[in-house]
Design a protein around this nucleic acid. Structure first.
Lengths: 336, 336
DNA sequence: ATGAAAGCGCTAACAA
DNA sequence: TTGTTAGCGCTTTCAT
């Protein structure tokens, strides 16, 4: 059996409180400190976090609920987040809810049972029912990537309007006028915002928005395959398409291959996320990339701050800027 | 504050032991059962797993240590594993050690502190020093994807020799004789096995193994870029290359693009893992794919069995078969 | 089947 | 600064 503070107390002849105080960074007389450290060393003592947790009502554990761990975007965020949290002594329990509302609800309940100290969530949709019970407990909550209506909590978002505008501007610079959009479900705030950004950028450039140049699909690969094919079939006059999320971007590239449409020649493309994939495309795909590390860092630091007693601001919205990674998938239509 | 069993006891007029017994599936008189269930309902009682954990010395938590969560292979396994474990009431704490031995050691120590009930590890290399202390605690351990020398524990592996042989056979069937290999570091058992499988398959077909047709690199993208370029440059007579892990496969595709080498024409390729990526390649990439779901399922079920008191066998090695996903990246060299 | 009581390992009041 | 003591919420003997 592992040693307890009782053993340390016995070995050093000190009281329990002194040991506990030492363990929690309190003031202990120099020579006692040495005695304690020696005893800890000899007995291989390690604090029992479970017992401490029972007492303090803290588990040093953060719950993370995401739609799909298989989405590179999610995996990158979690990797970076977990790293930071662990360096601060927090364990990260990840729950993948497979883009399913019911599973998301269950995941949050599960994490409440596990008594996590804080929750980070990339919500499946804009209703926030699954978080109501959690919020009643008064524990910190940080939402990433997507907003929820009327939810009083912190939001770490990407500037999605800007992301779409960046993509549209790339096309416009190269002389494109008929620009299509393949975008995810409008129940997700990020997709809505990207749609708005696309429309605004067109309007700003004096180009009329054609509602049927927009393909509204699901946030998955097959929907991307469908979308690009449909847009190209129904509107051969479209010269460039912006695909507004990563799964659909993969799908769009597959769709072009399947139809033998030469990307960057016959049809120009701007995708979303994942530099590795973009680089492996032929020709290299131009993308708008999200700063996953920054999102992760901000979310982790925000929740750590609250856990350390920072005053809760709630409803803080932070928007991080995206970046264009240039490839060769846009044809220039400019006359020399 | 949340309700405790004391509150339930008070409300029902029963003793603590009775409530506890009910909670743990013990025998309780019918009418008391109803009273208890009513009280639980009214007070929104939920067992405090932390307190239970202190008493039982069990946390209902499994630690998972992997080299890179960003590797799709890892993400897929974890997704499937977490799902199963959670359905059995276990939380999964994932630690990404960035393919770094020191970090791996720290991750295991961290998880020991957190007092996980079991550990699943995809080890960074073949030495197992980071697991020694953990094993002394007598808690269950399952290794996935890679073996460790002289480690007495269960192994869920892929039949890597067969995987490589499958790839080589594909080339041979199409009349290829000069077949290259781009493979990861030999300190990883999976890479070693794939190398052996490659050599054996060649020998079996009566083709002499050329040591300089093999590029030994790292398990990352850049190494794949390098590898394919070097093999093609130094040995233009090579007509087909098997790339023996996913990161290097992406790299190889990038390398071909950068050098303007037409995949499946000028040089045939068989990659490793990830159907989505393979499908998005142009032409579609033929790959050997690992059954991530099966690996996850077997690992999760194995550790759950031990946690439920199944007798420890240790040093059980299980090898799961890989599968070929046909694309169009192999040119036929057979004369009609 | 049920109740009383002890204790898991720790922290936090309080006293000294 | 240090020691004493009382719990945190649960399980688990041991009686009854």
């Amino acid at each position: 059996m592992a040693a307890t503070i009782k053993d340390i107390a016995k070995k050093t002849g000190l009281g329990l409180a002194t040991i506990s105080s030492y363990l929690n960074g309190g003031n202990v007389r120099e020579k006692n400190r040495i005695k304690i450290e020696q005893a800890i060393e000899e007995l291989h003592f390690e604090v029992n976090e479970v017992a401490r947790g029972l007492r303090t009502n803290l588990t040093k554990t953060i719950g993370v609920v995401i739609p799909e761990l298989n989405m590179v975007f999610c995996a990158e965020i979690i990797t970076a987040m977990e790293d930071i949290l662990r360096n601060h002594g927090y364990a990260t329990i990840v729950c993948d809810c497979r883009t399913d509302q019911k599973r998301e609800q269950e995941a949050v309940e599960f994490l409440m049972h596990k008594r996590v100290d804080g929750l980070i969530n990339m919500p499946v949709d804009k209703t926030g029912g699954h978080l109501k019970a959690y919020q009643r407990m008064g524990k910190p909550l940080v939402l990433i990537d997507r907003e929820i209506e009327d939810m009083a909590c912190d939001n770490i978002l990407v500037d999605n309007q800007m992301a779409a505008a960046q993509a549209v501007d790339l096309f416009i610079e190269q002389g494109h006028k008929n620009i299509g959009l393949v975008v995810g479900p409008q129940s997700i705030s990020a997709a809505r915002e990207r749609c708005i950004g696309y429309k605004n950028a067109l309007s700003k450039a004096g180009i009329k928005v054609q509602e049927d140049y927009i393909y509204y699909g699901k946030d998955d690969m097959n929907s991307g395959v469908e979308g690009i094919k449909k847009l190209h079939r129904d509107h051969p006059e479209i010269t460039g398409v912006f695909v507004a999320n990563h799964a659909m971007t993969i799908g769009a590239v597959i769709g072009l291959n399947e139809e033998n449409i030469q990307m960057g020649e016959e049809l120009s493309l701007v995708g979303f996320d994942n530099r590795q994939f973009a680089r492996a495309c032929n020709p290299q795909l131009t993308i708008v990339a999200q700063p996953t590390k920054e999102i992760a860092k901000d979310a982790a630091e925000r929740i750590l701050a609250y856990l350390n007693g920072a005053p809760r601001k709630d409803h803080t919205v932070e928007k991080i800027k995206t970046r264009v990674i240039m490839g060769k998938s846009i044809k220039s239509l400019n006359k020399e």
